[in-house]
């Protein structure tokens, strides 16, 4: 049975995501200032997302010599749109905008669009540094996607459903993070990785002068960077229905719990980001395939056996 929100939710969702994104960027600026030993005042940090957006809106766009504007334009647009579509299955409270029967697969499919997006932007610019950035993202993607998919599957096995609302319903008593901590950690890592953010920021790294985004000016940069943050927020928010009990919790209404938990996940990611350096893709690939993938498979096996034993976790 579908419990989707009325269609108005489709209008509300982008606004909500952008609002949370604003908060995340602000928190990131504050955390960066603290890590640097040069505190950024809250007022400056809170105005930062708006100011940067304005700066890029009035800024001039640039087109490279023989750059592929179509690819670049499509790639840039795909990033925020994929983030929005991935968030479709996100229960805002207990009801998502679209309650898809294979919601987890849908989320997975939408978020993988980022691969194409970043590579297209990197390739389309006709710039050596952008090209390196675009390929770095693909190489990284090959590594994080496997543990990520096993993490998704583990949650699905726990609920014996691919419908996100069923996964939330299965956690009425016990949050999945308790019985699948490895999958949760793997998921959090892949959240940062799919948004090529923080420790996984090599595709837009400083060593390649901004990498895939190195040649983007004006609104092109705005759309790309906003898309990246939206992706981070959407994926972080997905951790809530998958592992953190969704809207379940005492005292507060379901939507408030979802918001609080989403902000908590983002806060954890932001705090972690400023404690650690960037991970190099070739090191990560090895670790991800040889350690993380077997670990998440073992996690999936454990959860499967538990599910078999109990005839489901509900």
């Amino acid at each position: 049975m579908s419990v989707a929100l009325p269609l108005g939710g489709s209008v509300l969702l982008p606004a909500l995501l952008l609002a949370v994104t604003w908060a995340a960027v602000t928190a990131d600026a504050v955390a960066a200032g603290r890590a640097a030993g040069r505190p950024v005042p809250w007022t400056v940090a809170a105005a930062l997302p708006g100011r940067e957006a304005l700066r890029l809106l009035v800024g001039q766009r640039r087109r490279g010599v023989a750059s592929d504007e179509l690819l670049r334009g499509v790639g840039g647009a795909v990033l925020p749109i994929a983030a929005l579509l991935a968030a479709v299955v996100l229960p805002l409270g207990l009801r998502p905008v679209a309650d898809l029967g294979a919601g987890i697969v849908w989320f997975n499919a939408m978020e993988v669009f980022a691969w194409a997006a970043v590579w297209l932007v990197g390739w389309g610019a006709n710039s050596t540094l952008s090209l390196i950035g675009g390929y770095r993202f693909v190489a990284q993607g090959l590594a994080w996607e496997l543990p990520h998919m096993f993490a998704l599957i583990t949650a699905a096995v726990g609920a014996q459903s691919l419908r996100v609302t069923d996964v939330v319903a299965a956690q009425q008593g016990l949050w999945f993070v308790v019985i699948m901590p490895v999958a949760f950690v793997a998921f959090l890592l892949s959240v940062a990785a799919m948004a090529f953010w923080g420790p996984f920021g090599a595709p837009v790294g400083r060593d390649i002068a901004g990498g895939a985004a190195a040649e983007l000016g004006g609104v092109d940069r705005l759309v790309f960077m906003t898309g990246r943050w939206l992706l981070l927020v959407a994926a972080a928010a997905m951790a809530v229905p998958l592992f953190l009990g969704g809207g379940h919790g005492p005292w507060l209404p379901a939507w408030a719990w979802v918001l609080v938990k989403t902000l908590a996940v983002l806060a954890a990611l932001v705090a972690l980001r400023h404690r650690i350096p960037t991970i190099r893709m070739e090191r990560w690939t090895e670790f991800s395939l040889v350690v993380l993938t077997p670990a998440t498979i073992a996690q999936a096996l454990v959860v499967t056996l538990v599910a078999l034993g109990e005839g489901g976790l509900r």
Binding site: A32, A35, G37, T278
Partner: peptide, 8 residues
């Protein structure tokens, strides 16, 4: 190494 805090 993109360890911005210590770098700063």
């Amino acid at each position: 190494a993109c360890w911005e805090g210590p770098s700063a």
